[in-house]
């Protein structure tokens, strides 16, 4: 800061500095509590944001994919079935039968992950 600045100038610069700090983002990893906040759904999207997501999700093209901008690959249908595991838990919890089914599915997936890792080796 310039030592010859007037009191008003210095005060304005202090405000500008706080503005810069509030907008600034560094390259550091995002902290787990921040991730958890958003994964818990602690945010609200505007209709415009929802629309932008819809628009861009149609155009997500992973390398090697030959895809039209309007269709998602068939693999996505497969995803949807598994995505049921991510549904929000109802207030009173799931039924015993559903909990058992979820546990079974989790065990199955963990086992599959372990087997795939072993197949691949260290």
């Amino acid at each position: 800061m310039n030592s010859t600045d007037s009191k008003l100038d210095r005060d304005n610069k202090a405000l500008e500095a706080l503005i810069a700090a509030s907008l600034h983002q560094d390259q550091n990893p995002v902290e787990p509590p921040v991730v958890a906040k958003y994964m818990k759904g602690d945010f609200v999207l505007t209709p415009q944001e929802e629309e932008a997501l819809r628009k861009y999700s149609r155009s997500l093209l992973l390398s090697g994919e030959a895809q039209t901008t309007d269709s998602l690959p068939a693999a996505n249908t497969q995803c949807d079935a598994v995505m049921a595991l991510h549904r929000n838990k109802p207030k009173g919890g799931f039924s015993t039968q559903t909990e058992e089914e979820l546990d079974r599915k989790r065990r199955e997936l963990r086992e599959r992950l372990r087997q795939n890792r072993e197949k691949k080796g260290p």
Binding site: Y38, F43, L45, E49, L62, G64, E65, A75, M83, H86
Partner: peptide, 20 residues
């Protein structure tokens, strides 16, 4: 790719909230 799309479906809204 199906795995990546699962992640995409799961994370796109939280990420939009975070970036917003």
């Amino acid at each position: 790719q199906a795995g990546v799309r699962m992640l995409f479906n799961r994370y796109q809204r939280p990420l939009m909230g975070f970036l917003g």
